[in-house]
Simulated assay, not measured.
Amino acid sequence: MEFDWTPEQLSFRATVRSFLAEHLPPNWETVAHGPASEVQSEFADVFCRKLAEAGLLVPHWPARWGGRDADAWTAFILAEEMWMAGEPRGGQYMNVNWIGPTLMRFGSEEQQQRYIPPMAGGATIWCQGFSEPEAGSDLASLRTRADRHGSNYRINGQKIWTSYAGYADTCFLLARTSPGKNGISIFLIPMETPGITVRQIPSVIGEGDIHEVFFDEVEVPGTAMLGAEGQAWEITRTALSLERVGIPRFALASLMLHRAVDRLKKAGRYGGGAIEQSARAHAACESARLYSYNIIDQRVRGIATGPEASAARVATVSAERLVGEFVVEHCPEALAGGEPMLQAHHQRAIVAGIASGAAEIQLNLIATELLKLPREPR
């Protein structure tokens, strides 16, 4: 395997860094402290439009849809740099990483023409309506229903832990259209549709971005369905494989680990257990990085990604947690306002094992699909 970046890749990384240096404000690290705050969300709206104008929002998308046909490495380099800067794109990662590409593959011409151009222009936010109060990462247990009435569907139910629902223009919603695992369908629903109520869930770790979303007799046309009725499982597996490796959280974790170590060295407190613990955290970050790179390499070479995506995500979650634990134990003052970016990373690390499918669910997938371990009889 070739571990060196090509001159073109190095040039692209330099371009992204130059853009960030020019467009992030001097107080950015203080703003980034609240990764889902109203201030950062408002900033992200302006920032993403500038990214789009510079050709740096969706370079990996086809030229037909506003990209420049760049490969998956370009997208990942972009994501790494954005995350090391505190992810100034805000909620746009859903559009960029997986909703847009999913619509390109499964959407109708009408859906593509309606929804993809605003994504490419950085002019819209989406949310995903997956989890429910009694169906977290177990999508087969969904209870939100979409019942057919003539050519329309009426949707009733509740979603929870829905990121950015308070800012989103459109929801990528999973709802049950018939019994069983294969009875789930996907709907693309404007959040202004009558019958939708959004309530923010108070956060104990800062300014949260999670919400409850209620659907009360929400009527949508049949054309709002993505793909065919009952096709949600196939579409969702494709979408989540993109999402689980599309967020290089390890990049920010590694940067924050080095920052914490530098603080300890300057204070003369870096020794003994701190060295050993930081070495373990650093090794975890590098493991997550290389595992993710392997997945990207597969995509570039046209190899279908399977349960390895779940393994890469678990590796990233482990890295974030180890860095978070190191900071808590050795730099607690940084979490009390002394270092906004370290505090922001700590907040992100707390929820890392829940977003994009709970880490425990990913471990089950690894056990059954990657390691081929037998399930216990019930």
Rank of each mutant, 00 (worst) to 15 (best):
G121Q: 14
Y153L: 01
D147A: 11
A85Q: 01
G183S: 02
S137I: 12
P190R: 00
Y164C: 08
W83V: 10
S178D: 03
C171G: 01
V58I: 11
A168L: 05
A175T: 03
A52M: 03
C48M: 00
A85S: 12
W126L: 14
Q112N: 12
L173Q: 01
L174N: 09
S151F: 05
T162G: 11
K159D: 11
I160T: 15
W98C: 15
E134C: 05
A146F: 11
G91E: 12
I116Y: 01
W98A: 12
P117E: 08
V58N: 01
I186K: 05
G183I: 04
F76Y: 05
F76I: 08
Y153W: 13
K181M: 06
A135E: 03
I160C: 14
Y153A: 04
D71Y: 09
M82S: 04
D147N: 12
A175V: 05
I155F: 13
G121S: 07
S141F: 15
G67S: 04
A123E: 15
Q158W: 12
G100N: 07
M94Q: 10
M82C: 05
F76P: 03
S131I: 15
F106T: 09
A70T: 01
T144G: 12
D169S: 13
A85V: 01
L188N: 05
F106W: 09
G66E: 07
I184R: 05
L173D: 01
A75Y: 07
P88M: 09
